[in-house]
Design a protein around this nucleic acid. Structure first.
Length: 194
DNA sequence: TGAGGGATGGCCT
DNA sequence: GGCCATCCCTCAC
């Protein structure tokens, strides 16, 4: 696969969030290559964004990786049970990131199906297929993305993002999800999907 | 097809 | 001690 280089991640966060649509998350899990096509992202823009963990320059042990240079994974536990996978963007100290909100399985589908439902893919119901990875927590379950991958460099060989074939996606944008606490920032159109 | 609620634990004040 | 960038089941329609 055609791995993205560092410069890609150093661009404007909204641009990165949009261009990630249609690209691939590649992960080597116990010798099996898992590939997920990205279908939904959200941008979180550092100190100015009330929905961002780094809003107002808030800097803690958890958010420290966001203050580093782009191209690293920021993975955290949400609601006590689920992981969310983010990609840090832009230069050091910007504390911006893109949340991967959804994807569709491309390779290693049966392995991912086992991780997700403990069933072979061809045994899944239509409902389960529809809900395979259409949410940040679900996507992380399917690819076994856990805290162990937090702060990992996405230029590594076993966990990275790869360019898709040149395709024209009809990319839509909308408000972000479940950030009602973020006041005016909840209305920013920083969610992208196909 | 959609609303309602419970599970669950790290993080931060 | 309260808050969460979620998911899934149940139940009604």
């Amino acid at each position: 696969m055609n791995k993205l280089d560092r410069n890609f991640y150093l661009q404007d966060t909204l641009k990165v969030a949009k261009e990630l649509i249609g690209m691939y998350i590649v992960r080597n899990y116990n010798g099996t290559e898992l590939i997920m096509k990205i279908t939904e992202t959200e941008a979180y823009i550092g100190s100015i964004d009330k929905a961002c963990h780094a809003y107002g320059g808030r800097r803690t042990k958890r958010t420290e990786i966001m203050y580093g240079i782009g191209g690293y994974a920021y993975i955290y536990l949400i609601y006590g049970m689920y992981n969310c996978f983010n990609i840090v963007t832009e230069e050091k100290e910007k504390a911006c990131a893109v949340l991967i909100r959804g994807g569709s399985p491309e390779k290693g589908i049966n392995e991912m199906s086992q991780l997700r439902y403990e069933k072979a893919y061809n045994e899944l119901t239509a409902y389960q297929i529809k809900n395979f990875a259409n949410g940040p927590g679900k996507l992380c379950i399917a690819m076994k993305i856990t805290k162990e991958l937090n702060e990992k460099d996405l230029l590594s060989d076993d966990f990275y993002i790869a360019k898709g074939k040149k395709q024209n996606y009809d990319i839509k944008c909308s408000k972000r999800i479940n950030i009602d606490y973020a006041e005016e920032a909840k209305d920013f159109l920083w969610r992208f999907y196909v």
